[in-house]
C-alpha cells in the first residue's frame, strides 16, 4: 500500500506540535501583559475633571499638606474629598474672577456638589481603609505616586491584587516612619530593609495575606 503522505510532511507535523505549545504559551503571556497594561488598569491615565484642579500647584508649589483637604485620611476608611467650603477657604479671595473656578463658585452659591470623576475605584468586594495604612507607616506617595507633581490626577498603581499583595507580603520594603508619611519627596534610605524590619517591630506590622484581610 502506498503511503498517503510524503516523507517531507514529517517535518510539518513536528513543527506544528512544537508550534502549538509555543502558540499557547505566547498567547497566555500576551493576555497576562494586556491584563496588566494601562489599557486595562487605567494606571497613568489622567482623568478629565469638571475643574482643572492641579495637585501639582496646591500640594507641590504651594506646599499645602495633604490633610488640609483630605481631613479624614488618618481616622477613617475614606481619605475624604473636600467640600466646596474648603476650596472657598482660599478662593473666596484668590482667583475670584477666574472662569476656571466658576464651577466652584456655582457649587458654593447653589449648595450643589461638584461631580468629580473618581480616579481610584476599587471593586466593592475589597475593603480598603486609609487610616490603618497611614498609622502603620505607608506613605501617600507609596501608592499614589508623586501626586504633588501631577497636574490632572491619575492613578499611579495598577490597584490589582498582586500589587496589594506585594506589600502585604513584604511590608519591610515599603514602610517608612510615621512622621514621613505625608512627605511626598521622601525616598527610601539605602538600608530600607533594616529600617522596614525595625518599623515592623515598632508599629507591630504583620504580613497580612489572609483572604479575609481585604475580602469579607
Amino acid at each position: 500500500m502506498p503511503q498517503v503522505f510524503h516523507r517531507s510532511t514529517n517535518t510539518f507535523s513536528r513543527v506544528s506540535i512544537f508550534g502549538a505549545l509555543f502558540f499557547i504559551a505566547a498567547a497566555t503571556y500576551g493576555l497576562a501583559l494586556i491584563n496588566r497594561s494601562a489599557y486595562v488598569t487605567q494606571a497613568g491615565v489622567a482623568r478629565a475633571q469638571p475643574i482643572q484642579f492641579s495637585h501639582r500647584h496646591h500640594a507641590g508649589e504651594l506646599g499645602i499638606d495633604c490633610r488640609y483637604c483630605h481631613t479624614s485620611v488618618e481616622r477613617t476608611a475614606s481619605a475624604g474629598v473636600p467640600p466646596t467650603q474648603t476650596c472657598m477657604n482660599c478662593h473666596a479671595q484668590i482667583w475670584v474672577d477666574s472662569p476656571v473656578l466658576e464651577p466652584v463658585r456655582a457649587s458654593y452659591r447653589t449648595d450643589t456638589s461638584i461631580r468629580w470623576t473618581r480616579v481610584h475605584d476599587l471593586p466593592d468586594y475589597v475593603y480598603f481603609d486609609h487610616s490603618i495604612h497611614v498609622q502603620k507607616g505607608v506613605g501617600c506617595a507609596t501608592c499614589h505616586g508623586r501626586v504633588d507633581q501631577m497636574n490632572l490626577t491619575w492613578q499611579e498603581s495598577s490597584l490589582q491584587m498582586e500589587w496589594c499583595l506585594d506589600c502585604h507580603r513584604n511590608p519591610e520594603r515599603y514602610v517608612r516612619p510615621r512622621a514621613e508619611v505625608f512627605d511626598m519627596a521622601w525616598e527610601p534610605p539605602a538600608n530600607q530593609l533594616d529600617l522596614g524590619r525595625e518599623l515592623m517591630r515598632t508599629y507591630k506590622i504583620q504580613r497580612l495575606t489572609d483572604c479575609y484581610t481585604c475580602h469579607r
Binding site: 476608611a77 475614606s78 474629598v81 450643589t112 456638589s113 461631580r115 475605584d121 471593586p123 466593592d124 468586594y125
Partner: peptide
C-alpha cells in the same frame, strides 16, 4: 457585577435623593 455592589460608596452619586448626594 460584584465589583459594583448594591450599596453607596462615600460621595457616590445617588439617584434616590433629590440633591444627588
Amino acid at each position: 457585577d460584584m465589583q459594583d455592589a448594591p450599596r453607596y460608596d462615600p460621595y457616590e452619586v445617588s439617584t434616590f435623593f433629590k440633591d444627588g448626594r
